[in-house]
Structures are given as structure tokens and as C-alpha cells.
Amino acid sequence: MSESSQATVHRPAGTAGQGARARIALVLVSHSERLAQGAVELAAQMAPGVVLLAAGGRDDGGLGTSYDRVSAAVGEAAADADGVVVIADLGSAVMTVESVIELDDELDGRVRLADAPFVEGAVAAAVTAHGGGSLEEVLMSAEHAGGTFASLDAAVEQAGQERDALAPEPGDLSRTVVLRNPLGLHARPAALLARMIAGFDASVTIDGVNGASVLELMKLGATGGQELTVAAQGPQGSEALAAVVEAIDGGFGEV
């Protein structure tokens, strides 16, 4: 019925290859068909290796939530993945998801509804899933996205404290590098870095924040020309450090 040109499903390009790394799929449920599709599109740009399904609107395409659409999307996602995290926008979408989870016996605890803001939660969860996160990790990532954006002042203050805690220790590898792209560490490069870092067996901080967290990186608000301190530790610390520095120095293809 919905002959929309926008995708309702995002699947990794090479499902059998590297894209299969994400074990957790996401279902995004909105009152609006287009809002759900837009959220899938946005999250897919940041996390191309994750199966993302939109379940928005009523069966006739109007505003609302459809039990059948949600049920079909959740079933399809669960068939392919170890687990499914669902993010929903408003009251009836949340209640419809809960009904689906309660009524479908085959889902068997592998589907969880995140108590998360729709867009921020979807992006954070998708990036964590892309990095190979477990059901619990992807869920937590979505749920913590709310606090990250809800009170930015508090978050910045907290980030300052965490920064002290994450300050490079003796033995850490560390380098400084200048952000060369004019727009700085906006969403796309932040996601790119976070994904890259998650792929190494290493712990990397950028200006003191967790480099594997796309939201932490975006919160830095780092702009073009700014100098960043990258520190790494762990078995693949030096490889991770080199890759991150190279990506930043390369301007993320934007220079």
C-alpha cells in the first residue's frame, strides 16, 4: 500500500561478508511511516553493517501504529539476528511493541524495547551494534543516549570529570593531531571513528572521551583546525592510534 520510494529496510551490502559482524538488528517504530524510514536512513549512514527495519504508520499509511507492521518487522529482524532492539517514538507505539513482544512466543526473550529517545537512541544503538555489541550493550547504548542529549550542560560537566579519569597514563601511547576538515567532528566522521576504534582490541580516547562512543565524540564539539589528543592502550593500541590519526589527518575525505 505504501509505494514510498524510501527504504523500509536497510541491509548491509555484503551480508555474508564483513557486514555480518553485527549480531543485533534494530527495528524503529514511529507513528509516522516517513519518520521511521528517515531514522533508518540516518542510522544506516552511521552504521552500514547493521540490519535496520522501519515499522512506521498504520497499515493504510496514516499516522499511528500498526500491530501487524511492528510484528512483521520484529519477526523478520529476529529471524536474521541474535537479538533485536526496538526503539519507539510515542505512547501507542511503545504499547504496540510491548504487545508484540508479549504475544509472540517465538521471540523468546531475544527482543528488547529500549526506553530511549527515538533518533538519538537509534543512532547510538546502531553504531554499537555495528561494532559487534551484544543485545544488552546495544540496549544500554540506546538508553544512555537520552541522558547524553537531555542535559547537555550536565553531560559536558560530567565529561570533564570523566576526562580526568581517562587522562593518559604513563605507558599509554598518545599523539596530537589537527582536525583538518572544516566541519570538524560532526556526526559522520564521529561515527566513522567510533566504528574504526571498536574494531581494534584497544581502548582509545580522544581529548579524554571514549573514542568508541559516537555520542561522546560528537559532544566534544571539536571544530576544524582544532588540535585533538588521541591516546590508546591495549594489545592493538599502536595500530588503533595510527589508524585514528591517519583518518583525522586525512580530513575524513572532506578536504
Partner: peptide, 15 residues
């Protein structure tokens, strides 16, 4: 009702 109402009344009355 769950499949066709589209608003909060669907899951509420449905359940």
C-alpha cells in the same frame, strides 16, 4: 483491535 485501531486505544483495549 490491536491490528486496526492505530492509536493507544488499540494496544490498551487489545490487551
Amino acid at each position: 483491535l490491536m491490528s486496526s485501531v492505530g492509536g493507544a486505544a488499540g494496544p490498551l483495549y487489545g490487551t
